[in-house]
Each structure stands twice: as structure tokens, then as C-alpha cells.
Design a binder for these strands. Structure first.
Lengths: 199, 199
DNA sequence: TCCAATATGGTCCGGCGGTCCGCTTAGGCA
DNA sequence: TGCCTAAGCGGACCGCCGGACCATATTGGA
């Protein structure tokens, strides 16, 4: 048997309330009680549905994550499978940054619970693994494992938020920075194309 | 008049207790009450001395920060003033990473209070400013403002901790990664020395 | 219509950071 | 040396949190 009608209604109300609260307020002022109150349910209902606040945030992010994972796993190149390795790397960086810019409040909520809630999230593991692969394919000579983590860290929602809100960098400056972080050949030694083979 | 003897004793006891607790336990299990208890004083005594927990952590880190700032501002080159710009950059990165490795538990405690407690800290502003200058001097063609923040983020205590504890990267791998993040010319186009002038 | 399975939410619990205020103690001074 | 006041002190208290509990209300198939 499916979910009871009232349960479904409450689930939706809770998700709506949580999303709007996370968008609106400072993270520390979003409490379980407040979410329940805005959703018009009791605290216990929120917890029974989602386990804890982390589970609730997970449920909010899940569809966005799934959408991007689909495009990465089976969409059009260069974001999807196939295409030039360098183009694949940069398309992926663009997609990740767009995802972060779009979901920043939810991601920050996720980061807010537990020190490694962000990295530990299965989706993040996927992002990092994919990033590692694409860096390795595009730049065989670097430590892709480390660089992937460094780039992914530069794409943390709190970092991006900080650069925008407090250092007044716009999205395109950050985007350019991330690209050249992952692949400095584009910007640093200016104009030296087609020298990928060491010897 | 100076500080009363009992006050000085308590200040020292509190600092000791806090430091050892931050070293030993998970951050969330270090509470004001626990610190006071270990120090053998009341909670109010801790707060009167240091304002709040953030102030206490600040007081713990301050001497380490001051020591490094001295070396940077008036020590021997290349960490101190003077010397080759590239060497200055790399000496600085080494010093920053050593500082983080050495003070990681305290820095993580600092990061634990407030989302931007780390970046907002005056010392961090100094580190980032200095890093920006050194990147700009060593690599005039890149966006030093962005890159400095990205590198500094890669040096966050929580990030370094994560890479060591959960991804099993040793300190030297991280060190190499940070260096090549800040100056990819060293590693990426392999073995191409002395081509610093674009034309 | 009925009733068992399911969903619900007010109440309670332990613990937190931080404040308050009556009590204790240190230490300068006569 | 002894006293007295300013400084230091800490346990009780406040408001708030996330989460557990369980008596009650609701749903929807038989």
C-alpha cells in the first residue's frame, strides 16, 4: 500500500516550508520547531518522515542532484559520455558551478550538519570521483586525486558564497578562476596550445 | 594594577584545559561546561575571561599566529622580506601548511563557531592578503585575488584533515598539491625551466 | 459501517551557551 | 599584622535546541 493521503500532504508541506526557510533565513535561525510550525505540523512528524534534519535537507537536494547526475551519466557530450577530454572537464566544471550557484542555500544547509556532511554525502563522492576521472583524462601529468579535491573544495557552497558576498567577486570571475585552477594551461603560460606529450 | 594572582592561575588553567580538550575530543563534545570542569573553575569564569568560546579559541591561537606573522614580516628571506618572488611564494606556502598541520585542532575549533569565523579572523585576512601579494609577484598573469582564496581554502584545517584522515593522503602529497595549485608551472608542463617571460 | 493500521503532535528529556548575583578571596595599606 | 574593599568567583538559572515517547485522531480497505 502506498503512502496515506494525509502523510503525503504533510510531506509536501514540510519540504515546502523547509525550502523556503532555508532560502530566507540565516542557517542558525532555521530550527526543527520553526520548520514544523511553518509546515503546520508537529516536530515529530518532520522527524518521522526524514529521520533528522540532515535527512530533510537530503530529500530537498536529491532531485537536483539526480537531474545533474543524469546529464553527466547519459546526456549529450561533452557533459555526457564522449567527446574531447579537455572539453569534458570544462563542461563538467561549468555544470558543477551552476549547480552550486543554483542550490547554494540547500548545500550550505547540508554543510551545516556535521563537519564532513558535505564530503560524506554520496552525491559528493560521485562528483569528486567524476572530477578525478576528467582531470586525469585531460591532464595526465598531475595528481588528479589531490587536484580534484582542491577544485571541489573551491566549489563548496560556503566558499562560493563567501567570495560573492564578502569579496564581491561575480560568478563569472569565480568561473574563470575555477577553470584555470583545474587547467592552468588555458590561462597561465599564455597561448601555448598542443603540447600535451612530455617528450 | 596587574591581574590578580588567582585570576592569572585560572586563565592558565582554562587555556590548558581548552587546548587539551580540543586536541583530544571531537569538536561537538567540547562544551563550555566541560572546559570549565576540567579547568576546575565555573563556566562564568571562562566567559568573563574570554567573552565567549570563540574568544577562548582566539586566545589559544594568537601566540602561534603572532610567531608566524613575525617570521613573515621580519624574518629571513625567502619567508621574510626580500628574495626571489617564486621562492617567496613557495616558502610562504610551506609555512602556511606547516602552521595548519601544527594547529589544526585549534583552527578547526575556530572554524566551528560561525560560518565565516575562519575567514573573518583578522589573522586569516593577513594570510590571504600576503598570499595574494606573493602570487601576484610570482605569477603576474593570473587572477591573484581569486587564486589566493582558492589556495587558502585548500589550506583550511578541515580540508587538510579530511584529506589526511579520510582520503589517506600524507602531508607531503598535500604539500606538493598545494604548491602546484599555486604555481602549476613547476609540475604541469614537465621540465620546462626558465620561461617566465611570455614573449 | 467498522476497525486495525497508520499518522500525528504535545510533552518531556538532556544538553547547550550565556547571564546573574550573592559569596569568597586577594592584597594594598595603615 | 590585620583589615577592608575591590576584584574574582561559580552555581543556579534562562531560553533554546534536537530528538524520543506515547496517548489520541485519522484514514481507507474489508
Amino acid at each position: 500500500m502506498g503512502e496515506r493521503a494525509d502523510a503525503a500532504r504533510n510531506r509536501a508541506a514540510i519540504l515546502d516550508a523547509a525550502e523556503s526557510l532555508f532560502q530566507r533565513a540565516d542557517l542558525d535561525h532555521v530550527s526543527l520547531e520553526r520548520i514544523a510550525q511553518v509546515a503546520g505540523v508537529g516536530k515529530a512528524t518532520v522527524l518521522r518522515r526524514f529521520g533528522d534534519l540532515l535527512g530533510l535537507v537530503d530529500a530537498l537536494i536529491a532531485p537536483r542532484v539526480a537531474a545533474l547526475q543524469d546529464r553527466v551519466r547519459s546526456g549529450e557530450p561533452p557533459l555526457g559520455p564522449g567527446g574531447d577530454p579537455v572539453a569534458r572537464l570544462h563542461a563538467y566544471l561549468d555544470a558543477l558551478l551552476d549547480f552550486v550557484l543554483d542550490s547554494r542555500t540547500l548545500i550550505r544547509a547540508l554543510e551545516h550538519y556535521g563537519p564532513y556532511a558535505y564530503y560524506a554525502n554520496p552525491a559528493s563522492q560521485f562528483w569528486i570521483g567524476e572530477l578525478t576521472d576528467r582531470i586525469r583524462a585531460a591532464r595526465p601529468t598531475v595528481d588528479a586525486g589531490y587536484l580534484a579535491h582542491a577544485v571541489f573544495t573551491a566549489l563548496r557552497a560556503d566558499v562560493v558564497d563567501y567570495l560573492q558576498q564578502h569579496r564581491h567577486m561575480d560568478a563569472e570571475r569565480i568561473r574563470a578562476g575555477v577553470h584555470s585552477l583545474a587547467d592552468p594551461r588555458l590561462t597561465d603560460p599564455p597561448a601555448r596550445p598542443d603540447e600535451r606529450n612530455p617528450a
